[in-house]
Simulated scan of single mutants.
Amino acid sequence: MDLFRTPQVVLFTRDIDRAVAFYGALGFDEAFRTPTAGTPIHVDLVLDGYRLGLATETSTRDDHGLDPVTDGQRAAVILWTDDVPAGYERLIELGATPVKSPEPWLDRLLIAWVEDPDGHLVQVVQATS
């Protein structure tokens, strides 16, 4: 029996409604929300079997006594695609900040970088060979 299962990443946010809308527009579906009415303090989203959690900065401090970092490039969400230029442009249309436009990497990938509305890095990547 394995001790651990179902890994997930949780990103801290100052504006959970904005973050949920951003990732929802990328195709993530909501799988969990608490509380169920009003502004949530935590929302889980799923895309292609991968679960991404969003938690409010204040709830993480108040409920768990932690000191979450909500500024800077502290995590990256990686999104695979068959069209990096189109994915990069779509992210920017949805409010992401451009970081690096599409460029080849390792002679077999095409990648681009943006920051989501909370400053988390998002990398769009496709195999080229």
Rank of each mutant, 00 (worst) to 15 (best):
T128W: 00
P104D: 09
D82V: 13
A127E: 14
G27C: 08
D44I: 03
L52E: 05
V69F: 06
G119C: 00
D29R: 14
T70Q: 04
D71A: 14
V124I: 14
D63W: 07
Q8Y: 13
R33A: 12
T128Y: 00
L3V: 11
L110Y: 05
T6P: 01
S59E: 07
D2K: 14
Q8V: 12
Y23Q: 02
A112E: 01
G95E: 03
P7D: 02
L110P: 04
D44Y: 09
P104E: 10
I111S: 03
Y23H: 02
G53H: 02
S129N: 08
G27R: 03
H42Q: 14
R33C: 09
R108V: 13
L121D: 05
D63Y: 10
L91G: 06
A127W: 14
G53Y: 04
P85W: 08
P98I: 02
A127R: 13
Q126A: 11
D48P: 04
T34P: 04
E93T: 12
P7L: 02
P117W: 05
T97I: 06
G27H: 06
R5I: 13
I41Q: 10
V20L: 05
K100A: 08
L121W: 13
R74S: 14
T58D: 15
I16Q: 07
L47A: 08
G65V: 00
V10W: 01
I111T: 09
D67I: 03
Q123C: 15
T60D: 01
L45H: 03
A96W: 05
L52T: 00
V124A: 05
P98D: 04
D83V: 13
P7H: 05
V9E: 09
T70M: 02
A31W: 00
T58G: 14
P102W: 08
Q123P: 12
T70L: 06
D48E: 10
L54T: 01
P98N: 01
A21G: 08
V124Y: 08
L45T: 03
T39A: 08
V125W: 01
T36W: 15
D82L: 11
L94T: 03
R90F: 11
L11G: 01
W105I: 07
F22P: 07
E57K: 11
E30D: 03
Q126W: 04
Y88L: 06
A112H: 07
L121G: 11
A31D: 02
R108C: 14
A55P: 00
L26G: 13
V99N: 01
D62I: 09
P85T: 10
I16Y: 00
S129G: 15
E103W: 12
G53M: 11
E89K: 15
R14I: 02
A55R: 05
L3Y: 06
A75I: 05
L106K: 14
W105V: 14
A112V: 02
V69I: 12
Q73K: 11
T70S: 11
P117E: 07
A31T: 06
G119M: 00
L3T: 08
E103N: 15
L121V: 15
L106E: 14
D71R: 09
V20D: 01
T6L: 11
D44Q: 12
T34V: 15
D44R: 12
T13S: 05
